[in-house]
Design a protein around this nucleic acid. Sequence first.
DNA 1: CTGAAAGCGCTTACAG
DNA 2: CTGAAAGCGCTTACAG
Lengths: 342, 342
Amino acid sequence: MNLPAAKRRRATGRVTLNDVALAAGVSPITVSRALRGERAVDPELVARVREAADKLGYMPDPAARALASRHSTHVAVLIPLLSNALFVDLLEAVQRTLRPAGYQVLIGVTHYDEAEEEQLLREQLLHRPAGVLVTGLERRAGTRALIASSGVPCVHLMETAQAPGLHCVGFSQHAAGMAMTRHLLGRGRRRIAFAAAQLDARTLQRLAGWRDALTEAGLYEPTLEWLNPAPSSIALGGRMFEQIIGQRPAVDAIFFCNDDLAQGALLAALRLGVKVPEQVAVAGFNDLTGSDQMLPPLTSVRTPRGEIGEAAAAMLLALMRGQPVARPAIDLGFTLVPRSST
Amino acid sequence: MNLPAAKRRRATGRVTLNDVALAAGVSPITVSRALRGERAVDPELVARVREAADKLGYMPDPAARALASRHSTHVAVLIPLLSNALFVDLLEAVQRTLRPAGYQVLIGVTHYDEAEEEQLLREQLLHRPAGVLVTGLERRAGTRALIASSGVPCVHLMETAQAPGLHCVGFSQHAAGMAMTRHLLGRGRRRIAFAAAQLDARTLQRLAGWRDALTEAGLYEPTLEWLNPAPSSIALGGRMFEQIIGQRPAVDAIFFCNDDLAQGALLAALRLGVKVPEQVAVAGFNDLTGSDQMLPPLTSVRTPRGEIGEAAAAMLLALMRGQPVARPAIDLGFTLVPRSST
DNA sequence: CTGAAAGCGCTTACAG
DNA sequence: CTGAAAGCGCTTACAG
């Protein structure tokens, strides 16, 4: 190895494609192709290259690869919050599916802020991600344009709709809102309040489902809506419960848009001595951890976020590989979980 | 713009450093230096370059930058779980500090598995991160060697210790364990059980703190330790509470290693009709969301994870910039939060 | 303070 | 099926 000094000047000590090529006695480009399993390379050469690569401990440099191919192995994932267990479950499932396929997940937390989402996406796109996963279907026109013009494959999480070129995995938030409301109606409740925080797009779809179910039953009344734009939390659920019970004692059921609110409500009921479900039924959404441990156990809707994360990641994988996608819009449904709180 | 075809062949349409250089009438290298604020560049030139870059909407390519400089703008962060709010708070603080400085966070979830941690780090290191953040001080020798030989600056989260070359931000888990135990002793408790799940390094340090405080008081007894390697959860806390109360009715206080367990215990107590704190006091750790809403509100230890995330990220920032670090080991303390459960 | 040259480690696009 | 050439878009190291 008598390379001229100039050749060694910036040597990083890293094992490169070239080293493998020399060891295997082929050209670098053949190593590249053999290792990526691209095109037809003589199986015997592939074996020789593999062996040399293993022996030298060769690992491709993602930066060089990204620069040359104009695609990194990053996948950008944009979620509203990390403090909602829902999105953590989603993320874990995405990571579980994408990592073994050789992709790195870049997480962006939008805090339910459309401007922040656009800014994050703009930054992520600089890294030439191989794919993008975003939460929900609604966003700024600028953000949508950014995605479209980037040409990067994109799958939408948590909601589902049919539209040309749209890829999404989720379930009908509206139908889930209706289902829970009908469950409460089925238990004989007549004054069913809807209590929500955050008021993001999906919460509003559940609200619409509740509204439609009550209207259908001839029991809809605008004053039964309790909407609070503040972030969802156990403490807020307690306050909302006190408020509703205090101002509308005739309410006989409260459908909270998320389990943390409902859990807070159950704790407040215990504190206040309000009997659940005798005096008022309490229902939640998402079936978060702890809901089955509450007193009484909380009726909720189990949402398939793990499955959504996996299916969306699998769909993105196909898109990134240029493979055909059988169903571009997947509805994974939901499960009503009746417990003693209703 | 009459470039020969060959010049345009692989044009990406992206605005490059070269485009800015042409527009500003300087060499590309001067643009590079001006934009990075490196060395002394004529202020007038800097202004001209900035203007040209803004006008063209130039954004540097991270892959090209990483390849040439051998450092990406990624920071790898290794945490045990995303399903513990503690680490989510940590992560949010890290992101909040690192993103404005131009760094992207790559999250690795180790699931409390040392082999997985090593594997994740190995993958992350391929991306030539500018820095690494890891949770805790204990890990495999191989993982430590990987960090050391990479030469990438590394800061340790959640624990603190003095050692040459070691950078860490945290607090004394042992002292916190002692403090809570002494609080219980101060409330007249004499048979104080310690109930833990997961059994990671930090949990065991709290256990040691509990043990030392009880030994000091002449009240230590091995059978008061309830250690379960299963993942921590509200449901598990309920089961452990039932078990302890069932098998050792004389226990007059239980110190749970994490708030989720303690919350589950409080719910189980309600279910079983066990009076808290009259019959048995219940304490938790980390002061997680909802603990102040429990019935009775849960006594806990507030841990400064937000501050830890910020301080660690700031320290890493200094290391990545080659700046001196005043204090390589920062102890941010903790706060005992007494509530009605003890 | 500024620049021309070389190179980071890969892949694309073209030949054969 | 295999390869030589060129290039991806930056920064390093050396001069001046």
